[in-house]
Simulated assay, not measured.
Amino acid sequence: MKAILTICLLVLSNTFMVIAWYGHLKFSEWKWSSKLGLISIILISWGIALFEYMFQVPANKIGFKNNGGPFTLIQLKVIQEVITLLVFAVFTLVVFKTETFRFNHVIAFILLILAVYFMFKK
């Protein structure tokens, strides 16, 4: 149960992270944002990133082996990185529609899955 909760929290965290880091690139399509300066965009992104931390910190706390969770610190980091890349890929394909999913992306995702496999292998 803690493993599933940790992964769900990491997915939520990374969703907010991707929106905070890359969502502002879509601002130019919205009229209200045309007069925003860089500082305003940074502050908006920080506001969004607050939610990232609200999910990331509990995910790490719940999932970490030394706190009774199922994952080592290295395993947590690898899981988080894989989730980050998956969330980013979906975000790019759905929100920006500027990328095409190609064979090399499939190979990259297979290699990520293998990375997770080897990270958990005893």
Rank of each mutant, 00 (worst) to 15 (best):
I41Q: 10
E81F: 13
S45W: 15
G63L: 01
I41H: 05
T92K: 14
V78N: 07
Y117I: 13
T6M: 04
W46G: 01
F88A: 00
K122A: 09
G68F: 08
I42Q: 03
L9A: 05
L5A: 04
S13G: 12
T92V: 08
I19Y: 06
V11W: 13
I107N: 00
L25N: 05
M119S: 13
I42W: 10
K121T: 04
W30L: 15
T92E: 10
E81M: 05
M1Q: 12
I39T: 07
N14C: 02
S34T: 12
I39D: 00
K65H: 12
I19K: 00
L73E: 10
I48G: 08
K122Q: 09
I44Q: 01
G68E: 06
L76I: 02
T15R: 05
M119K: 11
G69L: 01
L112P: 00
N104A: 07
L5K: 10
F91P: 00
F118W: 15
Q80L: 01
K121F: 15
C8Q: 09
I110K: 03
I4C: 00
C8A: 14
S40L: 04
T84G: 05
K97M: 11
N67V: 07
Q75L: 04
L114R: 00
K65D: 08
S13I: 01
L9N: 04
F88G: 08
H105M: 09
I7T: 09
P70S: 03
L10H: 11
K65F: 14
V82Y: 12
M54T: 04
V57M: 10
E52Q: 09
V116K: 05
S45F: 12
A49F: 15
F103Y: 13
P58R: 00
I79T: 03
I7N: 00
F27I: 06
M54V: 04
L10C: 01
A49C: 07
A108V: 06
S45E: 11
W32Q: 06
Y117F: 10
T92S: 15
I39W: 06
I113K: 06
V94L: 14
I39K: 11
S33C: 13
I113W: 10
Q56H: 13
S28K: 10
A49Y: 13
L85S: 05
A89L: 13
V95G: 07
N66R: 13
